[in-house]
């Protein structure tokens, strides 16, 4: 009886670990994909180059997390990144949302303000999440988190510098930042959603700090925007990415990023 119980809880703990890794991997893949769409189209040549590194960092982080899932025997990292259908993806809806109207091939009208504000919300959350994960009892995750955490402060500072500049500019730039924050807050409601896994993540030690993460994130975001006298608009989300409920934008993104791989997943590329 005790054995059966511990087997059940062991199974649950494994499921909780996988769930956490899916969220980590899918978040970084999608935010990296959206950042990469700016490549070659940046608002300023020097910025184009710098932001391309941020995009690479994020996809590189995703690669490491998919690698951990591969290590758990869940399949090849590239299959996990490219072939899973939208409903099995666990990224926040915030990160699948397009940079603006129009597809890359058909007159993209990307909004740099939204890209920055979205990425900043994510950076602030990601840093809080990683600060907990460096103490994870799953040591491959703790090591990965420590390696990744070092790159995140630069991302956050970069977005903050830009947001600050746009805000101080006033006029259209400030209006765009305000509109971007309203849009992003209305999408980011699922980003720090830890239920129903919170207790398991804490008790199994996969993510120490999971329970406090949302409050810490809300507080950090509130404090950042308070510097500009801005009250963060109400959090909301047209779905819940953590439960696999996504917008059609995710399916569109996945179709693009897996177009070639899908032609022959068994081939060498």
């Amino acid at each position: 009886m005790a054995d059966a119980q511990s087997a059940v809880s062991e199974e649950k703990a494994q499921a909780a670990l996988q769930e956490l890794l899916w969220q980590l991997a899918d978040d970084d893949l999608l935010v990296g994909f959206r950042a990469s769409e700016w490549l070659g189209l940046g608002v300023h040549i020097e910025e184009d180059i710098a932001f391309a590194s941020i995009a690479q960092d994020e996809v590189g982080h995703a690669q490491r997390y998919y690698g951990l899932l591969e290590g758990l025997g869940l399949g090849r990292a590239d299959d996990l990144a490219h072939l899973r259908p939208p409903e099995s993806r666990r990224n926040s809806v915030l990160l699948e949302w397009p940079n603006g109207e129009g597809q890359y091939f058909e007159a993209p009208r990307y909004d740099w303000a939204f890209t920055l504000v979205r990425h900043h919300l994510y950076d602030v959350f990601e840093i809080i999440r990683l600060e907990g994960l460096v103490h994870s009892h799953y040591s491959p995750l703790a090591e990965t988190a420590a390696a990744i955490l070092g790159e995140k402060a630069y991302h956050r500072d970069h977005q903050e510098l830009w947001i600050d500049r746009l805000w101080r500019q006033g006029g259209e730039a400030r209006q765009r930042v305000e509109a971007a924050l309203a849009l992003a807050a209305g999408l980011a409601g699922d980003l720090a959603e830890t239920d129903p896994w919170t207790d398991l993540w804490e008790s199994s030690g996969w993510w120490p700090g999971a329970r406090a993460a949302r409050d810490r994130w809300h507080q950090a975001v509130t404090e950042f925007w308070a510097r500009y006298g801005v009250t963060v608009p109400p959090w909301g989300c047209p779905g819940n990415g953590r439960a696999g409920r996504h917008t059609p934008h995710l399916a569109q993104a996945l179709a693009v990023l897996s177009e070639v791989y899908r032609q022959d997943p068994t081939a060498g590329w």
């Binding site: 994909f33 990469s36 769409e37 490549l39 070659g40 180059i49 391309a52 590194s53 995009a55 690479q56 996809v59 590189g60 995703a62 690669q63 998919y66 990292a77 590239d78 990144a81 490219h82 890359y104 693009v256 990023l257 177009e259 070639v260 791989y261 590329w269």
Partner: peptide, 17 residues
């Protein structure tokens, strides 16, 4: 964005950058 694998995605991003 369409490069087949994660590795190729990173490499071509770096190349275009």
């Amino acid at each position: 964005p369409k490069a087949p694998t994660l590795y190729r995605k990173l490499a071509i991003m770096a190349k275009v950058q």
